[in-house]
Design a protein around this nucleic acid. Structure first.
Lengths: 157, 157
DNA sequence: CGCAAAAATTTTAAGTATGAAATTTTAGGC
DNA sequence: GCCTAAAATTTCATACTTAAAATTTTTGCG
């Protein structure tokens, strides 16, 4: 019945390329809108999102640089630069750990929280639009597939 | 029945974040392996793959810079830099268009083709491993979903 | 205690990435 | 046949990204 007769390996490669195309397209769109409407960038937004979530979970001292780096899956040196610019803009503040002078806590300022909340609402709408061809049932199914994939990967490590 | 009661918009956002996590994870893995086993980078590999495909399709003159930029969904200025380094390495050669002096054709050298073929085979194996938790039927289904999504997006433009 | 290994972060060098401006060349209308 | 608009590319400034080296501080063991 199928039009093409490909090995599982080749099919997975095809899927991977299509997945990459989708995410690159969506990311390009989101980046463009963040830039035009908020003068922001995607990495900045991602960092602020992580800090906002942390603040909601436990409104104490923010995240350490290492926690941020791991949460976003980017290198530690990378986080340093992004935080530096966010601090310059007044959206983020650093705070030293009293008991361990190696670590630095990082958290959103009030201005940072306010700025993020505006962007986050717009961001959710954009993502919804960009993925709107996917029906809610399809979305739920895909989430399950991704969760199962993630579980399989982490257990095999 | 469902544990959480989220709006379609929030569900799509969740899906997007999971999708991003998957692709970033896979990309990080592929980048690491390309670096360790071939001393190559992902952008270089992507460019070479596009040129290799073009050469298979019509073995004449390669691709123009603009075609490359569009195929990979990266900025034109970006392609200039990557090609520059590939030319230095002897994997790619530029050739001027005789009839239109604005455009430059770019194609793999023999060394480039050979180098790419080795990497491509390994790359397919890595992708297969990384996506192995997805059963072939699931892979086919996902490909259909992505194709439908892509069709819906391009038609609405 | 003393000191080597580990941990958290920053720095560095090179590559990737963008958007905008600049350059060169071509095409089309008058 | 000019001259402006469009097209293809490069250059530029800035930001992001990585891996590796360097720095600072803490921990744990003999």
């Amino acid at each position: 019945m199928s039009r093409t007769e490909l090995t599982p390996s080749k099919q997975r490669l095809r899927l991977w390329l299509k997945l990459l195309r989708l995410t690159r397209g969506v990311e390009a769109d989101l980046r463009e809108r963040l830039r035009v409407e908020y003068g922001a960038t995607l990495p900045r937004f991602d960092v602020m999102a992580a800090l906002f979530r942390a603040d909601e979970a436990r409104a104490d001292h923010g995240l350490t640089m290492t926690e941020l780096s791991r949460a976003l899956m980017v290198s530690n040196g990378n986080v340093t630069g992004i935080i530096e610019r966010l601090v310059e803009d007044g959206f983020v503040q650093r705070r030293p750990d009293e008991t361990d002078r190696r670590t630095t806590f990082v958290q959103l300022t009030e201005a940072g929280k306010t700025a993020f909340q505006g962007m986050a609402q717009a961001h959710e709408g954009w993502v919804n639009d960009l993925l709107s061809p996917l029906a809610p049932a399809e979305v739920d199914h895909l989430i399950e597939v991704l969760d199962a994939h993630r579980a399989a990967r982490t257990s095999s490590e």
